[in-house]
């Protein structure tokens, strides 16, 4: 009846690759694997990941080798940071998605790493699961799994960050070793 109404959502030809992204194969054991940390610029993010790295090194025999901070919380990590991670690391932990745009872009980073063959665990604060899931849908990875930590992260003390990181570790280990991704079934 209203066919003559113009659909305002129709843009230029699709720029996103369609089809489900393939996710990286999971290792049987984490021992000896080289770990990359991909932080954003949110307050406490680097510290959170550093603490995660230490926990993983102490308890799982992982070797932290690269720690980078992406310059822009909105966009995915630039190509040079991505290649630094994919060239030198076997697994990556990324985060912390503790704002509107960075939660979505952290998920996008995780999916890009998976597509490059690197198992990744993304940490999102629990206030931002909606935007994280929206990005997963946008990237054709509905059900993409990540680790949540209670919001907020920015106001935690150093001790608070350390405790939070320790809490997140079991979930991170599970994501890096078990085939938990809904999108992996493709």
């Amino acid at each position: 009846m209203f066919e003559t109404i113009v659909d305002p959502t129709v843009g230029p030809a699709e720029t996103v690759e369609r089809g489900r992204p393939s996710l990286a194969q999971r290792p049987e054991s984490l021992a000896g694997l080289r770990l990359g940390l991909l932080a954003n610029t949110k307050r406490n993010a680097e510290q959170f990941l550093a603490d995660v790295g230490r926990e993983l090194a102490d308890h799982y025999g992982i070797v932290p080798v690269v720690a980078v901070k992406k310059p822009n919380i909105v966009e995915t990590a630039p190509a040079e940071l991505m290649s630094e991670l994919t060239e030198h690391c076997d697994i990556v932990v990324a985060g912390v998605g503790d704002c509107g745009s960075c939660s979505a872009s952290a998920v996008a980073d995780g999916i890009l790493l998976e597509q490059a063959g690197i198992p990744a665990a993304v940490i999102i604060s629990d206030a931002f699961t909606v935007s994280a899931n929206a990005m997963a849908d946008l990237r054709n990875a509905p059900g993409y799994a990540y680790v949540t930590t209670p919001h907020p992260v920015a106001n935690l003390t150093a001790d608070g960050v350390r405790a939070r990181a320790a809490q997140a570790v079991p979930g991170i280990v599970a994501l890096l070793t078990e085939p938990v991704m809904a999108a992996a079934s493709a």
Binding site: V6, D7, P8, V10, G11, P12, E14, T15, V16, V74, E75, T76, A104, S105, A108, M135, L138, R139
Partner: peptide, 15 residues
């Protein structure tokens, strides 16, 4: 780019 979305002049006009 992170959303894979772009906007054209015609689309701006409709909106």
């Amino acid at each position: 780019p992170h959303l894979g979305r772009s906007v054209t002049v015609a689309q701006a006009a409709a909106n």
